[in-house]
Design a binder for these strands. Structure first.
Lengths: 226, 226
DNA sequence: CGGTCGCTGACATTTCCGTGACATTGGGAG
DNA sequence: CTCCCAATGTCACGGAAATGTCAGCGACCG
C-alpha cells in the first residue's frame, strides 16, 4: 500500500486532498505544520510527501532541505502559492520532485501523484477490455456480454477477472488477488476468492463445471487463458 | 506512446534530455539543427517538440513560425538562453506553449513536459448539447426540454449531466464527478452526487425508479447511456 | 423577507460480499 | 491401484455496505 504524507496548514485543502487520496486508496498521513511534518517524515517513511511551502513553525523549504541533508530520498511534491516564483526553482533545486501552484485542480495533482508513485512502483497494466470465445468484457463501462447478450456482473467479479486477465496464461495466487483487488481494510478469506471465481465461471463459461478459460491451478490459485 | 522531438545542437544537453525522457518512457526523436528538426516535425508528427531557440541552419524561431503558418499545432516547448528575454515573448507569441531558460533544472523541464502533454490529451471535451429519447439539453443555454416542454434544471444538475454525457457508456466514479463539477474548495459528500443524479432522473427519465439513461454502477458510480 | 439551491443527515431499500457447511475432486503415499 | 486428506466446488444465509428517497436547514439572491 502506498503511503502519502500531507503537510498542509489550510484545513480545507488538507481535507480535500485527504479525501481524494484515500478514495484512490492511498494510505494517508497528515501534519499541520512543518515540525510535525518533518517528524512524521522521519518516523513513518512514507512513499511520497505532499508539502506546502508556507507552513507554521518550519517552512516546507526547510523541511525539504533538512530531509535531503539527511539523505532521505522520499519523493516530494511541493505546493506553492502563485507568485512564489523564486521559491519554485528553489524548491526544485532542493530536491523536490515536482511542484503544483495553488489554486490547483485536484485532477492535476492526482495525475502528478500517480506519475511520481508510478516511477517508484511500476504496476502491471490492467486491460480495459477483454475478449475470449464469445465473451466481451469492458472494464471501463463495467459491461459484459456473452454471445452479444448483456451479462450482469458485480464490481468484485470485474476486479478479479481483470487482474487475472492482466497476466494471461500465468497462475495467480489467491493472496495476490486479495492484495490487488481488495483493499487492506477488507481482507477476507482466500475462500472468498474461490467464490468470486465460481460466480464468474457461472456467468461467462460455457459449462461452469468444465471451465476453459478460468482454470484452477491446484495448490496455487487460478489462471486465465484466452 | 507519447512521442517527443528534441531539436538541440548542444550534444551534452541533447543527450541529457534524451536519457531523462526515455527513462520516463517517452518515445524520443532528435535533430541537431533547425532544418532537420523542421523536416522531422512535418514527417513524424510528434506529440511535443522541445526546441532550442539558437540553432544552426534555421533558428527555433523560424521553425516555430513556419510550423504554425502551416497550421501544425504540435505543442512546442522553447529552450532559451538567459538574456534572450526579448525572444521569450516572441517565442510565446509565435505559438510556443511554454519555455524554459537555460540553464534549467531537469526536474523542472520534466514537470513542464508532463504538463504540456497532459493538456494536449484533453480530458474529454464537454458536449454543448445532448439528445436522448425525447430529451434535448443545451448546456450553453442552460435549457432542457422533454417532449418539447421546457424542464427547469439547476446549474449543478446541468454540470453533472454534462460530465456524465461527455463519457457516454463509461462508468464515472463519484469522486471524479466531484473533482470535475465542483471545485476543490467546496468538496461535499459523495452523497450529494447521488441527490443530484436522483433529481436529474426525476426530471428527465420516464420512470425515475427504473432509469434507462442515467444508470447506477453499484460500487462504482454512474454512467450515462444515450 | 420569500424563494431557490445545495448540502447534510435519517431512514428505507436494494445489492452484494464474506462465511461456513457440505459435496466433490485431485494427487501423493503406501 | 486405492485410500485418504487437503484443496476446491457449490450453495445458502446473515449482515454490511451502497444507494434511493425525503425532509430540513442555511446561504444566497432578488
Amino acid at each position: 500500500m502506498t503511503r502519502i504524507l500531507i503537510v498542509e496548514d489550510d484545513p480545507a485543502i488538507l481535507r480535500g486532498l485527504t479525501d481524494n487520496l484515500v478514495a484512490e486508496s492511498y494510505d494517508v498521513l497528515t501534519a499541520g505544520d512543518g515540525e510535525a511534518g518533518y517528524r512524521m517524515l522521519r518516523e513513518h517513511k512514507p512513499d511520497l510527501v505532499i508539502l506546502d511551502l508556507m507552513l507554521p513553525r518550519m517552512s516546507g523549504y526547510e523541511v525539504c532541505r533538512k530531509a535531503r541533508d539527511e539523505g532521505i530520498g522520499t519523493p516530494i511534491l511541493m505546493l506553492t502559492a502563485r507568485g512564489e516564483e523564486a521559491d519554485r526553482v528553489l524548491g526544485l533545486d532542493l530536491g523536490a520532485d515536482d511542484y503544483v501552484t495553488k489554486p490547483f485542480s485536484i485532477r492535476e495533482l492526482l495525475a502528478r501523484v500517480r506519475a511520481i508513485v508510478r516511477r517508484a512502483h511500476p504496476p502491471t497494466a490492467l486491460p480495459d477490455e477483454l475478449r475470449f470465445a464469445d465473451v466481451v468484457v469492458n472494464f471501463r463501462r463495467y459491461e459484459a456480454r456473452k454471445s452479444g447478450s448483456p451479462v450482469e456482473m458485480t464490481r468484485k467479479e470485474f476486479g478479479v477477472l481483470r487482474f487475472l486477465a492482466s497476466r494471461p496464461g500465468e497462475a495467480v495466487r489467491r493472496d495476490e488477488l486479495l492484495n490487488e483487488v481488495w483493499d487492506y481494510k477488507n481482507y477476507p478469506t482466500t475462500r472468498t476468492v474461490d467464490n468470486h471465481v465460481a460466480s464468474i465461471r457461472a456467468k461467462l463459461e460455457e459449462k461452469a463445471s468444465e471451465p476453459r478459460h478460468l482454470l484452477t491451478v491446484h495448490g496455487v490459485g487460478y489462471k486465465f487463458v484466452p
